[in-house]
Simulated scan of single mutants.
Amino acid sequence: METTHPLPFDSFLDKMRNPASLDLVRSIKSFIVSFSFNVGNPENDGKRIQDFFLTTEAAIRDHPLWAGSTDEEIDNALEGLEKYVMTKLNSRTFASSAQDVKMDREISEKICLLQTFLRPEHLDIPVVLQNEALWLLAEKELKKINAFKAPREKLLCIMNCCRVINNLLLNASISEDHVPGGADDFLPVLIYVTIKANPPQLHSNLKFIQLYRRQSKLISEAAYYHTNLVSAKSFIVELNAKSLSIEETEFEESMQAARLVNRVPQITSPTIDKISTFGKQTDPGPSTEMHKRKTNINDHHIAILGSAGSNYPYMEAEAGELTVGDVERLLGLYKDVVTKYNSLCNTVRHLSISKTTVSPASEGTNDLLRGHNGTSRDTDCKGE
């Protein structure tokens, strides 16, 4: 598997330390400074950086330091240039718009819901391709994507993930006598791996690579794998019951149950302002036990909170420590928890009844329906 920490960057830095490279160093640093002061616009930014790479490539090819260099040595210098510039400009170019940040959050949240119930058969992945060990390896490669700031290294994470999947398909075709289905086999597995991995800022990473990877390098295998992950992302964004081999009612119930689980309230500690408000409410005063502790109003509420940052602020409290001001908040929390608990129980009970009352005859019908939905899913999967 190709490393994501290449030597060309070190070679590029060594060249830049040479006094003879002063003109190039000044040009690169001047570009970085001027770019940083401009108002961000992803599409314009991408074109501007691509133009700078082309201009600097011409300067490097004509520079005395690279006189007599091979194409590979020139290419290594350009890889080093890309990494240097994009690492310096990462905070300015990566996830640079509010829309990108919003898209990243929405995709991640949807994947979190799908993770609770989605199985390989929902994507019509053949049993012969269901290899948890290799899938886990592919997931780990994809999860590394945010550990790097340069587009080449981010792209390598995608390529390493896809190569694992490609090897899985190849091995299945050899050892299991499975006829490879090309994208019809590859893309569903990539979609499933992506959902299992839930890579951070998926949308922004794909866009960053598209805009800032040198265009002469976003070709062939790299372009194919990048395009497939873009298609996988688009499939996940648009995914609904018709995209999968699953009954629509089962899909909706599973998504609803997942939403309920994900909406369990995480109760945080009151802020200083809220604590001050509590102090102004009608209060008969602390209990005798609290009086013996000689605590003021802030100490009282800190005692009720229990350990710092606790998500269950009344767990450590004693009855005598509560005030009139706490009753309304406690009642609200109680109603909220009971409502969500009843909704979750009803959903789970309905799912259980649905699964236990299916007759063998209806199972056959369901298989036919799943096959029909699977056809729809295959159509949605192809391309972006």
Rank of each mutant, 00 (worst) to 15 (best):
D336W: 01
H372G: 00
L239C: 14
E316W: 05
K217H: 09
V33I: 15
K355Y: 00
N296W: 07
I145F: 12
A308K: 06
D100C: 07
N298V: 15
F52E: 08
H5W: 03
K29I: 14
G306M: 10
E57F: 06
L344K: 08
I297G: 02
I158E: 00
E43L: 13
E221M: 14
L54Y: 00
L129W: 04
D124H: 10
E73L: 08
F12A: 06
L78D: 01
C381H: 04
V358H: 02
S234G: 08
L330Y: 04
L54R: 15
N167D: 12
K140L: 08
S359I: 04
Q210Y: 14
K15L: 09
L368M: 06
V193L: 07
P151W: 03
G68C: 11
K144A: 13
L202N: 05
M103T: 14
K382Q: 06
P120M: 12
K340G: 01
I267P: 00
P313D: 02
A258T: 06
G320D: 07
H203T: 13
L322H: 02
E121T: 07
N205V: 13
K149E: 03
L7V: 13
L368F: 00
C161R: 07
L351E: 04
S276M: 11
A183S: 10
T87E: 11
D273I: 11
N298G: 06
L134R: 12
V261N: 08
P360H: 01
S343V: 02
N262V: 05
G279M: 08
D326A: 05
L190F: 11
L351F: 04
E153R: 15
H5M: 11
V85G: 01
V189I: 14
D184G: 05
D177P: 01
A147N: 07
I125E: 01
Q210N: 13
N90M: 05
V324I: 09
I125R: 03
K102S: 07
P126A: 07
L211N: 14
N38V: 14
I111F: 01
L322P: 00
G279V: 09
E57N: 11
S231C: 10
S352E: 08
D51T: 13
E82G: 02
H178V: 08
A197S: 15
A197K: 10
M255R: 05
A308D: 05
A241M: 03
G46A: 15
I49W: 04
E2S: 09
I107M: 08
N131E: 06
A150K: 03
A67S: 14
F208H: 15
L22Q: 12
M86F: 15
E316T: 10
I353E: 09
Y212G: 06
P19G: 07
D10P: 01
N131Q: 05
V264L: 10
V33Y: 06
P199C: 12
H291L: 12
A183G: 01
L137P: 00
P19Y: 01
F52S: 03
S204M: 11
F37G: 10
K382Y: 04
Y312T: 12
S220F: 09
T365G: 02
Q266R: 13
D283F: 03
A98H: 02
D367Y: 00
T277I: 10
E176R: 10
E247P: 01
L81A: 03
S27A: 14
